[in-house]
């Protein structure tokens, strides 16, 4: 599913070269529930950008769902993101002037799906996250937890092989956060592959496998009992 080989990312910071990712080789099989944990500056955001096909590595290889991503251009990456990845961000990142259902439909618009099918699938996705009631509300009219559910529905709508969540509970109170984690767990039980990037140990523990990253290297890889 996810296979990286000696994945390395260097940044030029003035005269220094920062090794944000240093020779990361990892394998995440289909249907996993993995959390990538590490303090800020550890390289976890860089790893997330790589896994999320938002950026290409300085060296090394990345195969997602059998496709070599590391040499793609911007347009090819956009297409891969659209088809293979569902993003969930810390700040929900819904488009404020679009209603819940319009936000959820957005990936399908870029995939070129017709409006009738979009609407049907968006309703289905919103139903999966338990939000079939408020589909015509704009984000400002929804609570944080509800907004994050909309974001998850948006991530689910293309049936992507990978759902990538970056601190998905970071902006939520603990109760809403727990609900969102519950939602991820049930998605995992239904066969989705989920990768959560977090600095919160408590959240990380709820995954099936924990990858700990420090100074751009994977320093721990363990199954949660």
């Amino acid at each position: 599913m996810i296979q990286t080989d000696h994945l390395t990312k260097h940044y030029q910071m003035g005269d220094n070269i920062v090794k944000a990712l240093d020779d990361v080789t990892l394998h995440i099989p289909k249907g996993s529930f993995v959390s990538i944990v590490g303090p800020s500056g550890s390289g976890k955001s860089t790893l997330m950008n790589q896994l999320g096909c938002l950026d290409i590595p300085t060296s090394g290889h990345y195969r997602l769902d059998g496709i070599e991503v590391s040499t793609m251009n911007d347009n090819q990456l956009a297409e891969i993101r659209n088809q293979k990845i569902g993003f969930v961000f810390q700040g929900f990142d819904l488009i404020s002037k679009l209603t819940a259902i319009e936000n959820v439909e957005l990936p399908l618009i870029y995939a070129g799906v017709g409006s009738r099918q979009r609407e049907m699938r968006a309703k289905e996705a919103l139903d999966k996250v338990g939000l079939s009631e408020r589909i015509h509300h704009i984000p400002a009219e929804l609570s944080g937890g509800q907004q994050q559910r909309v974001a998850i529905a948006r991530a689910l709508i293309t049936n992507p092989p990978l759902i990538l969540a970056d601190e998905p509970t970071g902006n939520l109170d603990s109760h809403s956060g727990q609900e969102i984690m519950g939602l991820f767990k049930s998605l995992y039980q239904n066969g989705n592959t989920i990768v959560i990037i977090t600095h919160d140990e408590h959240i990380a523990e709820q995954a099936q496998r924990i990858l700990r990253i420090l100074d751009g290297r994977i320093v721990e890889d363990r199954e949660v009992s």
């Binding site: 956009a78 088809q83 488009i95 957005l106």
Partner: peptide, 16 residues
């Protein structure tokens, strides 16, 4: 800018 970022993350191409 942020909206453009989101759109790009979920698959908007340059030309979109």
């Amino acid at each position: 800018t942020r909206e453009i970022g989101i759109r790009k993350a979920i698959g908007a191409k340059r030309k979109n």
